[in-house]
């Protein structure tokens, strides 16, 4: 009984102290500069600009958030930045032209090799390439299902969502979607996935178990020059946020009906988006404006712009 109490106390303490353990930092890749801009998510001030390598695009955390990984397309590598010291601590060879990736809860990095029509499974601790999986042309968006049993990769020029089994690393299905699929997000139950299709101007809803398209929203009529790219769900999963590229806006959708709720103007060629832990702030990387927009998700409006480096691509937050 005493043991149980002690354990409970420990769990309680851990739960309480978790927020203190975070760095309250935003990390933004600047594709043109070879840098990552680090921003304090509370003061919204730039803390540091870290040189990482050539053509940084996708960015994501290790499961413990001690490290942030950056795909360095021209260096054929993943750069590793310590989220505390803000130093580049490692550069791991990652096959040809890595563009996007997702980190599995077990630590494996699944990445797309854009010019090689491959998805690669990389162990960042040892640098070992665990698997190279042939997919379609110009593979891009990568996402891991919440249960970790599935990795999905989009191929931009083959217009497909490839479903790859974990740990088997077999392609188990390929779903044809609209032109130039770029990014995927899952619901927390893993049953539904949403895909942005950039040239098709669509958001596509997939039934993951049935492995088929169940709904799609064509946005081109409503939003001029729309090129959907970034996509994520609010924490209550009642709102879907989509960045619209040259539509220069963030769109909120009803995830069940895919109806457009609100179009929020931000900066030019908006791609990467990230949501704060409390869900009240959404951040967007505005590629042609060299800044990051801060969106108030209750007022549904942009409240701030933060200057960053050249051609910002992706953004993640540890708060």
């Amino acid at each position: 009984m005493r043991c149980f109490l002690l354990l409970s106390l420990l769990v309680f303490l851990t739960a309480c102290t978790a927020p203190d353990d975070v760095t309250h930092r935003l990390f933004v890749t600047n594709e043109a500069d070879g840098t990552v801009t680090v921003i304090d998510s509370r003061s919204l001030e730039v803390v540091k600009t870290v040189e990482v390598g050539s053509r940084p695009r996708c960015i994501g955390f290790s499961p413990d958030r001690r490290l942030v990984y950056v795909a360095l397309g021209n260096d054929n590598a993943i750069g590793v930045v310590d989220t505390r010291s803000l130093e580049l601590v490692n550069t791991i060879p990652a096959g040809s032209d890595p563009e996007a990736f997702a980190v599995h809860p077990n630590g494996t990095i699944y990445l797309s090799n854009e010019d090689d029509a491959l998805a690669t499974a990389l162990n960042p601790a040892t640098g070992e390439i665990l698997a190279e999986i042939p997919v379609g042309i110009e593979p891009e968006g990568v996402q891991v299902s919440p249960d970790g049993k599935l990795v999905v990769v989009t191929s931009e020029s083959t217009n497909m969502v490839h479903m790859i089994s974990v740990p088997g690393h077999e392609v188990v299905d390929n779903i044809l979607v609209a032109a130039r699929p770029r990014e995927v997000t899952f619901t927390s139950d893993g049953k539904t996935a949403y895909v942005t299709c950039e040239v098709g101007g669509e958001v596509v809803k997939l039934d993951v178990e049935q492995r088929k398209v169940v709904d799609n929203l064509r946005m081109r009529r409503e939003i001029r020059r729309v090129k959907p790219k970034g996509i994520l769900l609010s924490h209550d999963e009642k709102t879907l946020y989509v960045s619209t590229g040259r539509g220069n806006s963030i769109v909120t959708l009803d995830p069940s009906t895919l109806e457009i709720q609100k179009v929020i103007p931000v900066g030019r060629r908006v791609w990467g988006i990230a949501l704060s832990r409390d869900g009240k702030r959404l951040f967007s990387a505005n590629g042609l404006d060299n800044n990051v927009s801060v969106v108030d998700t209750e007022k549904l409006e942009e409240v701030r712009k933060i200057p960053v480096g050249g051609r910002p691509w992706g953004v993640v937050i540890d708060d």
Binding site: A117, P134, G136, I137, S157, T158, M160, H162, V171, N174
Partner: peptide, 10 residues
């Protein structure tokens, strides 16, 4: 060449 990469899946 590209059609056959797609065709592999379809």
């Amino acid at each position: 060449i590209e059609a056959n990469i797609l065709g592999r899946f379809t």
